[in-house]
Every structure is written in C-alpha cells, then in structure tokens.
Design a protein around this nucleic acid. Sequence first.
DNA 1: GGACTCTTGGTTTTT
DNA 2: CCAAGAGTCC
Length: 716
Amino acid sequence: MEPTQHPNDKLTPSQKKAVLHKDGPLLVIAGPGSGKTRVITSRIAALIDSGVNPRNICAITFTNKAADEMRQRAFALGKAAGTHISTFHSLCVRILRQYANFAKINPNFSIYDSAEQSQCIKQAIKTCELDTTNFSPARMLEAVSTLKNKLITPEDFEKNSDDFFSNTLAKIYQHYQNILTENNALDFDDLLMKTAYLLEDNPDICQQLGDRYKFLLIDEYQDTNHAQYKIAKSIASTHNNICVTGDPDQSIYRWRGADIRNILAFETDYPNATVVKLEENFRSTPNILKTADKLIAKNQNRKIKSLIPTRPPGEDIAVEAFEDEKYEALAVADQIKNLEDKGAKLKDIAVFYRVNSASRVIEEAFVKNKVQYQIVRGVEFYSRKEIRDLLGYLKILVNPQDEVAFLRIINTPTRGIGKTTINKIAAYADSKNVTFYDALKNVDKIDSLSKAPKAKIAVFVNMIEQFKKDVGGNVGPIAEKIFTESGLENFLSTSKDQNALENVDELINAAHEYDKQTEQPSLLDYLQQISLFSDTDTYDKTKGAVSLMTLHAAKGLEFENVFIVGLEEGMLPHERAADNEDELEEERRLFFVGITRAKTRLFISYAKYRTIRGQFQRTSASPFLYELGISLTESTEENDYEYERSHDDTEFDHYDHPSPQTPQFAIGQLVRHKKFGLGRVIKFVDMGPDSLVEIKFNAGQTKTLMLKYAKLEKIE
DNA sequence: GGACTCTTGGTTTTT
DNA sequence: CCAAGAGTCC
C-alpha cells in the first residue's frame, strides 16, 4: 500500500527469496515498513514472468483501498490484467453468486450492513419476547457475529447451550437468521460463513476454484478470522500454492474474530512451508523504531522479531502533556503550522486517535486555525439517510424480498402510508406466509384496510412495477430516473439538509462512473459492490490536506509526520480492554501500529483533563507512555493558544455543596502522599466527593490528584 | 398520519 | 454528549 522505496530499487536477499519462491506454501513474516506490499506485487509479476496465466492468480487484501492500490501497482509492473485482486468479502460475493444454487441461496441477495442488521436483530429480539435492556441489540449482534466468524450455525450453537443466556442467544440467533433468509439478505459475516460451508460441503467446487486460482496470495494474514482461514485453506487445498504475509505484532482485529493463531500456526498447518522474515525497516528513523520496539517488547504473547533500521538517525520523538483536549488539539494545529514553515506538505501529515469521537475537537481546532484536513471515515457516505433512501429503491428492484428496504422507502417521500397501514400489511403477509411485497401487490385482499390506504398502496406498487421495466444495462440512468420519479428529488429539495441533494448527485455520478468502468454493468452487481465499500476507501492520499483517522484505519499507511493524541488511561488502552491481558496486548499492538506509521517525525500527546460524554474529567497518562522510555514534557505554553476554557476553575469554586465528609485543603498546606512523598497544596478544587488537589511535591513534579483516591496525610 | 418534543439509554475499533 | 424511540399534539 505504501510507496516504500528500497534503495537502488533492488530487492534484499530475503525479499528476493519471497518474490522468487516457486510452488508450495510460503509464509512471509513482515515487520512494519519492510516493503511487504512491494514484495507481493513483485511476486505477482514474477509468477506471470515465469509463465503463470494472470487469471490463475488471486490476491486477497484487507480493504478495497488496498486492493485498488495493489491492482495499480501490479498493473504498472505489466501483464497483471486478469489477476483477481480483491478483499475476502468481494471474493465471497463472487463465489456465492456463481454457486448460488449449491449454497442454497438466491443470487440476488441484498447485503446488510450494520444499520440493517440492527433492524433485523431488534425484530428477532422482539419475536423472542425479550426485553432489549437485558438483551441489547448491539451485544446480541456482536455475539452472533462472533459465532458466525467461528462458523457456528444456529443449530450447532443451540445444541451446545446449557444456560439461560446461551439458550436465549441461540433463539435470537436462529430468529435473526430466519429474518435474513426471508429478506433474501446476507450480512457481512454470512458472506464468509456461507462461502466456507459451500466449500466444505462441495469438494468439486474447491477443485474448480483451485483450478481457477492456482496461486493464492493473502495479505494481512494476522487479521484473518476462522471463516477466512477455512476459505483460504479450501481454495488452496488442491495445490497448496498459498502465500500469506503478515505481522503478528500488527494484529488489531481480535474483536472482529481475527485469530492470531492462523499466522502463528501456519508452519504446522502447512508443514512444508517456506518461511521468510523481513525485518529490515525502510520507513522510519531509528529513533521511532527503537521506541516502537520498546513498547511491543512488553507484550508477553508474541514471537520475538527485530526491527532493523536502515535510515540515518532522525529527530527525537515528542511526548507532551496538555491541559485538556482543546489545548491538545490547538497544539497539534500549531505544530502543523510549524511543520509547514519547515516545508512539510499537509498530505504528509496524519493525526491518529483511538475513537472516532475524538476527531471533533481536532476538527474544531483545524477549522479555527485554517488547517485543511480530510477525515478518513467520518460519517460514512453510504449510511447517510438520503443515500440509503435512494439505494432502498434500487435494492427492491433487484430483490423484492428485501422488506427492510421496503419499510425504508414505502413512505419516503411521504405518501400517506403510515404506521398503522404498514402494520396491517405486515400482519397480513405473516398470516398468509407471503412476502411483504406480495402483500402489497394483493392489497385488495387485505380486509382490515379501508379504501384510501388501498388506493395509495396501489399507486406505489404501480410505480415500483414501472421502475422494474428499466432494470438491465447501465445503473446511472436508472438511479437518476428513480430519484426524480419517486418524488425523492422534490422531497429533498425542500429538506433542511443542504447537502442532501449534493450527496445524491455524488451517488449518481458514482453510478455513472461504475457503468464506465465495468464490462457488464448490472444493478445487482453495483449494489453488492457498494455494500462492501467503506469510507476509508475514498481516502485520497494526494490531496493537500492533513489526514485524520482512527488507529485502526491507519493500518497499512505511512506518513512523514504523525501525531498520536489521547494517550490516556481509558482511551489508549481503551477502558473496555482494561481488565483483560489479551485485550491490553491488542491495545499495545494498536499503539505500535500507530507509531510505526511515522517515517520521520512522531508527536505523541495526552490531555490532563478530557471531556468524556459531556463530563470534564481528570485523566492519567497512559501506562504505555512509561513503556516507551521517553521522558514526558509538560506544555508550558498554554497561554499561547487562544481559547477560553469552558469549565474554568471559578466554576468549581462556586460549587454549591461542599461535602462535610471530605477534608478541605488550604493553599500551602503541607501534605504527605504515600508514593510521591512530601509536597504543598497549590490548588484545591472543592467538588464534594470528587474534589481535586494539585500538589507540588518536593521531589519536583506537580500532580493533580483526586482526593478520594490520593489518601493524603495533612502535616502541621 | 405526521411533525414535533421529550426521555431514555448507550457509548471502540470495521469488512 | 448524542441518537433513537416514545409520547404528544395538530
């Protein structure tokens, strides 16, 4: 993915070994910045040079973006046309459509994303007559996803559940799956699971796919889950020409079912595997690498691997503390201005954070300071309301069973078909065991409906039937026509959201673009493709703007200058990982990924106070910071940043109810802390049980502590 | 039936 | 703090 240059454009002996490897399993353990992507593309070229038909090569990447880049690079090396390069999910869609009857599915399936999944799981929970407070949709969905990634079917799971929770989950899972089937829909996990079972049940299909894809290359293998592992193994089963690359230290998708054992056990799995280690790093300065290495060495569950620097020593890494998240953000903006003065380009600068919500304060600071930026995956384009609405119309034309899509658009724009009417139709469909759309078509037979709604529905059905006649051929014109004739366009032009129309225009343009670039455009193919598209894929690395993204999204990228913000306990490591050693190690790997994205300059920072869910809270520095072996510098230039603190101290001073139980501290009071020793109080913020004391310790450091935890002893 | 306000509950990361 | 769902009024 990254344009890592190797000096003299020559391959190192290890790289060469991986590139020129002939038949049989190959494991490439590649550290960050080791030229891994280059090795894969060179290997594709080398295979073709040795006489392999490009059509017989299948390369699998982690994101569509990575696939695009790899395609471009492979094509640049020549002759790669015909090579299949895509993500696991895209490959699965292709396989499932081709072998739909073997997989016992309808090839016109819709692909449900998280919003649609959420609808279905809510419905499932409701059917089970359960309370959503104890069985929250998000949790259930997560549990179901985990099961699917492990290839556990509802039936299998039901058999092995013996407690209340599992039994209930089994029921919900089964219902959820039934709902998807009724809608002729697959969720992301189904794409993998159905493919895995298709291949397991049909050795002849494995054979066919093995003949088609004689050479399988999989990137980021450390982040494959069990289903993906099985799919790869099945396709390669006839020839074992499987080449996987990855770095166990960069495994950051455990929560999504990624199983690090897949890469760790590759050699036992494929006993005659050739192993190549790429430990040289062509990306970062030795300083950055030393820091990254110190951090990752703290992980217990890991295979030791070196990071061998090849670049001359660079600048020191900056680790800074700021008063709160606003100061931190302004300092980042300020520092970026400095970098620009030194000649840095905005496109070579990135800011990483742990959670998406952390982007807001950075954005505000950037807007204020006029720093151009682009967010890599902000509000996802395809999840916008207006986009979903138009896509809803398109989806039902291809898949009339898609009730979720119907419910979305039946009254958008409003056409007088309300909740009551819809409920009556749904009840009728249930009782007659027909699809929602069949019920709509037979609206005359629904006795519970009066004349007016029946007429409105007939008009709607008629409109949909008219649209159906246009399906076939190019997608752009259909999208355009439906946008106008459905009334959506008028509806949106009166909407408050100024951007809505522009967004739809963008979608229609994208559809035209698809028509241009696709040999045989079809609405079905288009819809299935964009379902797998994420906003990360639209990121433009040549744009003159700073890139803002989560640490997860940073995987596979590199930048001259990197800022990592929010190094606080609870943020990184995230609080949800706090009590689990494995998850803590994953958080450490995440930080490791962030650090190793930096080529030349790295700025790490944290805020002493942060607003979390509207609460202004004291934080403490991330334990990871102490593992880096760098001393922390406190920002002393707070006043340089023009900003009014929203919660200033006077607000606390007027706190209404000083609690009698908590002791009061006067400025200048001498105290003893059991860890930091003697010190004097320089500030006391009375907040009842949550009171804060700032103490200047004799040892030198100044700390703000929460009184209830600090266990301070007053000294006369 | 639809637009509006109010309340409640939930909050990591993504194909 | 924010989004989604329930409740209220026209």
